[in-house]
Amino acid sequence: MNESIVAPQGVEDLVADERQRSAERAQRADNRRRILQNAGIGIPFLLVLVAGFVAVPNFASSSNVANMLVNAAILAIVGYGMTLVIAVRGIDLSVGSAQALAACIAAATVNAWGPLAGVVAGIGVGALLGLFNGLVVTQLRVPGFIATLATMSVFRGAVLLFTGGAPIMIASTAFKSAATAKFLAIPVPFWIAAVIGAAAVFALSSMRFGKHVVAVGGSPESAVDSGIKVKRIELLAYLIAGAAAGTAGVLLASQLGVVNGSISAGLELQAIAIVVLGGTSMAGGQPRIAGTFVAALLLSMINSGLNLLNVPSFYQYVALGVLLIFALSVDGAQRAAVSRMMKGSK
């Protein structure tokens, strides 16, 4: 034994073996991830669905279902934008304030120039605010969470100044009926959310932009080396998140009919919760639009159930906090499991 130990088997075998093991490890890690992702959203979804039907009176009434679908749609649209931002390793805490500002400006525009102008104004304002966030993050190099924490405050101040603290009533019935109109027995906002979601899925899986988003979030250094303009992708993600918040704001204004400067407070928490619950990892590079969509439905069911049970609204805070921490724990567990797998433990 003191001289040289010679390879016990051929080199080619060793390499082939290692390749095999590596593939198996990846397969196991992938399975584990999928199980955790699907369980993280699927089990709560089913539990809440069943609980709602069994324990909550009027849960399945057609008006409540329609209401839940509209709420879910508004939430999901904000969630898509957030999904994108989180996929590029960012975060947008200003979505609530941005949505409020967009909704109020949309409402004022509807009153002044009609519904179509209102829609354009709302989405446009959202996009502008998103652009502003993106510029602060990419050009001033302020970390996303703190930049948007600051703009959350700035936008909120702006909307309160815009409304002067007073509510804005929307006069146009055409605009107000949009949120409750139905197409094939399903509320129009839900269709809108579904279509935007499908477009987002396509963009992420089959378009250049989607690959770049995954690259920027998955490995920023690789993205730079591949000649991807990382800052532009980040900027676009924030811009889209703002536009999504604006779009949802228009729908919200239509649903409520009356808007004021303090609506949508705490929306950022709901949006982050559904994104993470849907399986998009906080580590970046893993957007899951479909998961966000399902999680939006779940959260909307929870909110509606608690409302129907006359639970004081404070408990909804608690529920949301718990839900978020649950979602993040699943995300953490999933990442830990995957990294254990990749290292090769059994």
Binding site: S329, D331, G332, A336
Partner: peptide, 20 residues
């Protein structure tokens, strides 16, 4: 120990504590 990024974990607990 749950390894949640601090800003987001404490955003969650902010609402939790406020709710309490």
């Amino acid at each position: 120990f749950v390894r949640i990024p601090p800003f987001i974990a404490t955003l969650g607990t902010l609402y939790l504590f406020l709710g309490l």
